[in-house]
Design a protein around this nucleic acid. Sequence first.
RNA 1: GGGAUCGUAGCUCAGCUGGUUAGAGCGCUGCCCUGUCAAGGCAGAGGUCGCGGGUUCGAGCCCCGUCGGUCCCGCCA
Length: 591
Amino acid sequence: MNFRKRTAVCGELRPENAGQIIVLNGWVDSTRDHGGVIFTNLRDRYGITQIVISPETQPELAARARELKAEYVIWAEGTVRMRENPNPKIPTGLVEISASDFGVINTAELLPFEISDEQLAGEELRLRYRYLDLRRPALQNNFIIRSKAYQIIHNYFAENGFLEFETPVLTKSTPEGARDYLVPSRVHKGSFYALPQSPQIYKQLLMVSGFDRYMQIVKCFRDEDLRADRQPEFTQIDVEMSFVEQNDIISLAEGLMVKLWREILEIEISAPFRRMSYREAMSRYGSDKPDLRFDLELHNITDIVCHSEFSVFALAAAEENGAVMAMNAKNCASFSRKTLDELTEHARKYGAKGLAWMKFTDGTAQSPIAKFLKDEEISAIKAKLGAEDGDLLLFGAGNWGKCCSFMGAVRLETARKSGIYENIRSKFSFHWVTEFPLLEYSEDESRYAACHHPFTSPMSEDIALLSENPATARAITHDLVVNGYETAGGSIRIHDNAVQQTMFDLLGMSREEAEKKFGFLLSALRYGAPPHGGIAFGLDRLCMLLCGSENIRDVIVFPKTTSALSLMDGCPSDVSAEQLKELGIMLAMPK
RNA sequence: GGGAUCGUAGCUCAGCUGGUUAGAGCGCUGCCCUGUCAAGGCAGAGGUCGCGGGUUCGAGCCCCGUCGGUCCCGCCA
């Protein structure tokens, strides 16, 4: 043993410990040498404790203390005592350790950046040295929260009679959904496993097996481009239940949210959460995952402007599924021309051709399109949107769905630009979006694709629509939206083989193909499948919200960059020719 | 696949319209200092301006390409 083992940690000492002789282990956070007195802050994951050495009475100790550098690992023994000058900024700030001895356990080279939450180094550098960045108290706190969440989740589901399973990671590639990560088989050259996008089919099969209540905290993999809230490998809380209807799944999920927020943040959130249909979410907020911490609702003014002389409005209104949508940005008449241009540019990114605006000041409407609108049209619009002096109205026109979604993007951007965002940072909103369309038509592939996944049950009242007008059929789905993030999603599944076959038919999948890809599931559905459904939570996004972060990398220990690289270990990387040969793989694109 | 933006000292950044020897704060090194906690004072070291090419009498700055970070669109059952 080359060090004195700690008898306390750096975050725990308080005035009541005064007089005790203790030993601390930790990292040198900083040293302040005043000549006549030397202070060293020792840090571990529990906190920071100040150690004091007095050169006058401890010349040998002081000489060694002057050799200490940032991030050395040391042990220090001493007496806890009250400080002459307390530091109210840290929990241990009332006490300090008067050192009697210390030793260096390990030295550290000069770090590539300072371990500090105050001024962050570039993210590229911090990712390259992720193990050092993870020493930062703010990041450590995120993983302490994440760890608490694991415990709460396991307990919650255990208390509710759920069994935990581990489903395979080497699985079968399926045609629907995201791009798969593939793993070549050595034994069967030319064949591949896929890493799971989610354990969807396995959990359904466990229902057929009679396990009734399944849960798993599980890694999932999707080979798609990254975002601030999306990583190629991420963690789901995967849940499936038998003999249930949608309400059972929803209330179970609500119970978990209440418990997480209560036990981690000491915030009481009220359940049941508000529910709205997909159609309502799209038409009122322009998003299937609206942020309901603020209003800025969209209004359909197609009826008011359908005969307008402003041709953009009139043409959109005349179009099939066309619409003119408007939003009242309260008190935003002060937006500059530049800000309005930026909003328009933002709308264009989401497929808008343009964005019209109208400001109300001193009782008059000021707008580039005012000259095309009749007074009665303007006053009808004003009345419908409740516009008053100081308000800014924003208008979008076009296909209803597209129009709603770019206006939804404008809604969020307006919230950011108006300062609404600043006031809602510490708020939380939870709500459900249900009744998603079962299918959406893919222009690219000239066929329907499942909105959720191909095993999602249609609403019973919409089953007839599957043959008449598939695009209008709704599914029994439930998405949990927290602060505008899709935090969980699920559905009641098809437990009837005939309905499942109908789905595959609609997806343009031949009987042979369906049999080849999903035959095992179709078989299972013929051997006594209970009605079942479930939900999967994005654990990383949940943790991000609990940590008050807007970036998923803050809650993933070793994340990838936007280009899916791991800067720390340098993957993905070359493999040897021997490895490739063993797998029967030849590269078509040698570097 | 596309758009925006960034890359200058170990770190965070400034660097004007292209013009002499590229700056600041922090950190680092040395010295001083008895109560700091972003300690303070004095002195010092430290630069392939991401990389490659081009324009120009002259490029950190302009142009083309490329690599990397971030954010977004598409994509993400």
